[in-house]
Each structure stands twice: as C-alpha cells, then as structure tokens.
C-alpha cells in the first residue's frame, strides 16, 4: 500500500552567515499531524524530495502546547507556533521558514535574545528582596488580576515582532511584547512601587515611541494578548510620567 505523502518546503540555512535555500521533503502523512511531527519525520529520514541524503532539519521546540514560545516559525506565510499548527488545516505544499526579524542560527532556529534583552531593559520583574523579611505585599483586586492574567500569557514567542513593520534592521524599536510586560508589572501592587523606572525605560530610544500603530501585533498574537490596548495605556502613563518629571510632582518617584 502506497503511503500518503506530505510535501514540506523548508527554508534552510546551514550557518548564521551562509545563504538561505529551500529544500523540499516528502514526509509520511499521519492523521492529526502538527508541523513539529512533520519536521520529526525529516529527522527520522533525512532524505529530500530528490532522494539525496541531507543534514536533518534543525528547529527549536519545547512544551508542545503553545506556552513556551520556542517553536515560532513562518508557516505558509504566517508567523505562528509549529506545535499548535495542524497539518490537516493547511494548504499543501506546506512552506516553513524561520522568522525574518531574528538572526537565524541554523535552519528554523532563530536567536530571540533581543527579546530577553528588552525584558531586562524595561525591568520586567518585581523586586521583592530586602535585608530582612519584608512581609506580605499588598493585595490585588480580583478584577484587576483577571485582565493582568491575560497579559501574563506572553511567552516571548516573537510573532508580534515578526509582524510589526517598525521592528526591523533600520529601527531600534523593541517591539510590542516587552511593552505589554511593563503594563503587566506596573499593574501588580508590589510591582507598581517601581512603576516610574519601567516607564522611564520605555521613554528611552527604541522604546514606546517606536510604535506606529499598525496594530498587526494584536491581530497575530497567538495568545490573544490585548497588545494595542497595553500600548495605548502606556502612552497615557508615559505622557503623565514625562509631565511629572519635567514640571515636578511629589508623585514623580
């Protein structure tokens, strides 16, 4: 019995500096396959459509349930997670390429370091350490916790940066994901105590001002995070902060 085959066209790159090229694979089809399991077939049998033995395709993946953000790639032109993209719902041939916003390490593996650097830049954490036990923090209203939880779903997958026209090699804009994290940590009752530090980081070059309101980010976010609402809310917060800083206010801490 002839097995059903699936055509997978992978944009490959052997090293960070070498030129990308496309390679076609015919992989054995199984029911309910996702892109990861299709790629695993190319590892199991690393032979391309011309019958040549090639190096197995490299990619990153971890949780396989769309919460870690590692397996983002451009599938049929759309940046998304390979784990939650089902083969049965795609048009064939399936084209898989690395995200173009990030430097390619090899094949589909990209280096998302810039996103983690941005999280450091905007201080996306809550300082709780003291020289002694500081005790419990203030309570958080349940209603606020509910919308803040939506912001906490960000998995630094990079899809919003990939879709943003202002995130590119000509601009130093940090992109939507780290901006929204500032809103998350500023909404936390303890995190709020360092609110101005995060807002001031957003007012530096490459920060919030780089947003041009194309609003692609909110359309493509796999977790449905209200990124553009976060950006507009931060526009308001940074404007107020800059007025406080310039004109002076007892609340400018």
């Amino acid at each position: 019995m002839a097995e059903e085959k699936l055509t997978l066209i992978v944009t490959r790159q052997d090293s960070p500096d070498s030129a990308p090229y496309e390679e076609t694979f015919k992989v054995n089809y199984r029911k309910n396959m996702n892109i990861i399991s299709a790629l695993m077939e190319t590892q199991r049998n690393p032979v391309n459509a011309n019958g040549e033995s090639v190096a197995p395709v490299q990619w990153e993946s971890n949780c396989l349930e769309e919460v870690c953000g590692a397996c983002s790639m451009v599938i049929n032109g759309e940046p998304r997670q390979a784990c939650s993209t089902l083969v049965d719902k795609l048009e064939q041939p399936i084209r898989v390429a690395p995200m173009s916003t990030f430097p390619v390490v090899r094949d589909l593996v990209v280096d998302r370091s810039r996103m983690f650097d941005s999280l450091k830049k905007v201080k996306a954490w809550i300082p709780i350490d003291g020289t002694h036990d500081l005790g419990p923090g203030p309570r958080m209203p349940e209603k606020k916790r509910q919308w803040a939880y939506e912001l906490s779903k960000c998995m630094t997958c990079g899809v919003c940066l990939e879709a943003c026209p202002n995130v590119n090699s000509k601009s130093d804009f940090i992109g939507p994901a780290p901006l929204s994290q500032v809103r998350l940590f500023n909404s936390h009752p303890t995190g709020e105590m360092n609110k101005s530090e995060r807002l001031e980081a957003l007012m530096e070059d490459g920060g919030l001002a780089g947003c041009g309101n194309s609003q692609n980010c909110v359309q493509v976010c796999p977790k449905g995070i209200p990124l553009t609402t976060s950006i507009a809310a931060l526009n308001r917060d940074t404007n107020i902060q800059s007025f406080k800083n310039f004109f002076g206010s007892d609340n400018a801490h």
Binding site: A163, P165, F173, N213, S214, Q215, N216
Partner: peptide, 22 residues
C-alpha cells in the same frame, strides 16, 4: 525619517490598520 525606518508589509498582513499605517 519615520517613513524611512518602516518596513511595510501590507501584502503579508492586510489588516485595516496596517493599510492605514502604510
């Protein structure tokens, strides 16, 4: 300068606001 630093992508992301941006 703002026009120069954008890399327009309406052909890939044909959303209304992206068209307005362009």
């Amino acid at each position: 300068y703002i026009v120069f630093v954008a890399k327009n992508n309406v052909s890939r992301y044909g959303f209304f606001r992206n068209w307005m941006f362009y």
